[in-house]
Amino acid sequence: MIDLRSDTVTRPTPAMREAMANAEVGDDVYGEDPTINRLQDRCAELFGVDATLFVPSGTMANQICLHVLTDPGDEVILDRSSHVFNYESGASGMISGVQLNPIDTSDGRLSTDDVEAAIRPDMPVYARSRVVSIENTANKAGGVVYDLNRIHDIAAVVRAHRLRFHLDGARLWNASVALDVPVHSLVKPFDIAWAAFSKGIGAPVGSIIAGSQDLINAARTVRKQLGGGMRQSGVLAAAALVGLDGYRERLARDHANARRIADTVSDLDAFDLDLERVQTNIIIFDVHDGTAESVIEKLARHDVHVTPFGPQTVRITLHRDISDADVNATMDALKAEFA
């Protein structure tokens, strides 16, 4: 099976399994798990922040971040395609009592003009604009990247209006590799940020929240309130530590393989694909005739599995478990069915 549905489908490597089996553990709710602490210290250095916090999932990471930045009745400005708006089961309203203000953009990325236009006047009839949230890379927009110039420009608007800045960095590792910049440079403009270990890093579970010591202290309390305080969770951190070793070379390979498949898709008249949006490990394209489900069924005949992203939209996602031979087989399957 060539599983291109998501980069969440990776299996722990033998090295990860060995590290998990041998992990030194303690009670992380007491702050006493040495492997969790090593992971948090390593990520604090990578991100250039005071402190970090391991959490079970990306959705929990997003919701903790928004909770510590807002009060009930506040508003979060974000792109309409963002994960927080589309794929988190209305959690922001339920958990934090905030409303989301989704902005339509041309390419899945907010601009300074978008943010300026979305900020509410300071009047009692309006929700208080409180947070600007961006997703880097932007999954639903095709894995496109916010570059440093755009991030700093938006940050300047955020600061001028005394708002808070949140980064959904589920695939932050991919953005760092695509831009060839260190992770800390992409995190520095934000009040709080997070990155997933279960996507580009290839670990089975977990994400890391990064910020000031005060915000991470508050995040630890919210994590406990949401049921995310785990005990001997060093067995999970051990896999993430292994995944961090050499991740940049692995992701660069994923990005190159995504481009190879994208070139094939672009050459086929059955599909419509904007190659400029293939910047990382994600390929999103539209089907001219037929449906996404019909494409999925035809590729499945070749044991190639992709995912629908709309009635006529398909997503392909590259990851560590996809070999060069798998990429060649995928291109062959696309040509066999759609050329």
Rank of each mutant, 00 (worst) to 15 (best):
V295P: 00
L163S: 11
Y146K: 03
S129Y: 08
R159N: 06
V125G: 15
P102F: 03
V158K: 07
I64G: 06
R171I: 05
D332F: 13
A252H: 01
F85S: 09
F338G: 00
D113I: 05
N139I: 12
R301W: 12
N86F: 04
V98K: 08
R223M: 15
H319R: 05
I77P: 14
G243Y: 12
S176M: 05
V265S: 00
E297V: 02
A210M: 10
A329I: 06
H67N: 15
A270V: 00
T330N: 00
Q279V: 07
R11L: 13
R320P: 08
Q312W: 08
L273Y: 03
E75F: 13
F285Q: 00
S198R: 05
G73T: 13
Q99F: 10
V29R: 09
A118G: 05
T70N: 15
H67Q: 13
Y87H: 12
L148H: 03
T112L: 07
V187C: 00
R277Y: 05
D107K: 01
A239G: 11
S233A: 15
V132T: 15
G234E: 04
T112P: 04
G228Q: 07
V158G: 12
V29T: 12
I209P: 09
S176K: 09
R11I: 10
P14Q: 09
L46Y: 13
L318F: 10
T307K: 06
G310N: 03
W173T: 05
A178V: 03
G227S: 09
W194A: 11
G26R: 09
D263L: 14
R159G: 07
A127Y: 15
M60P: 13
R109V: 07
T137Q: 03
D41Y: 14
D168G: 07
G31A: 08
V145Y: 09
R220M: 06
K298R: 10
G58Y: 01
I64Y: 12
L236F: 12
Q99H: 08
M16Y: 06
R171L: 13
G206R: 02
R248M: 10
H67A: 11
N149S: 08
